[in-house]
């Protein structure tokens, strides 16, 4: 029994202090994809490889529009791999809970 007590004392408290203190995800964690609008060329590579079809490119009144929804994104990182300009990167951000679906959209427009 003393051995168990010793083990317990040695282990200490393992519970995370998460909501009080920020918890930073590991470096290779695949979190929220972020788009750098200036490097994007609207080539459509990411649209072609996205397994859950959450990246879309459409033309609207002479504007190219890229729509990314975090809602169905499975964070596979294929868009990051195929993007030649490095315009889309997966970050370590994971606190994405939202009250509306509308807040989970990322839209980029450019005049042709």
């Amino acid at each position: 029994m003393l051995k168990i007590l010793e083990m317990t004392l040695k282990t200490g408290i393992q519970t995370t202090k998460y909501p009080q203190e920020p918890d930073i995800a590991p470096l290779d964690f695949r979190g929220k994809p972020e788009i750098f609008p200036d490097s994007c060329t609207f080539c459509g590579n990411c649209v072609a490889v996205c397994p859950s079809n959450v990246i879309r490119i459409k033309e609207d009144n002479g504007e190219m529009v890229l729509v990314l929804s975090y809602c169905g994104c499975i964070f596979c990182g294929r868009c990051d791999e195929v993007c030649s300009g490095g315009a889309i990167k997966l970050t370590q951000e994971y606190e994405m809970a939202s009250r509306t679906k509308d807040d989970l959209y990322c839209i980029i427009r450019r005049k042709v």
Partner: peptide, 14 residues
């Protein structure tokens, strides 16, 4: 209602 929502809709014109 302990925390505020962090993510917001982003719309950028590049």
């Amino acid at each position: 209602n302990t925390f505020e929502q962090k993510i917001r809709r982003t719309e950028v014109v590049a």
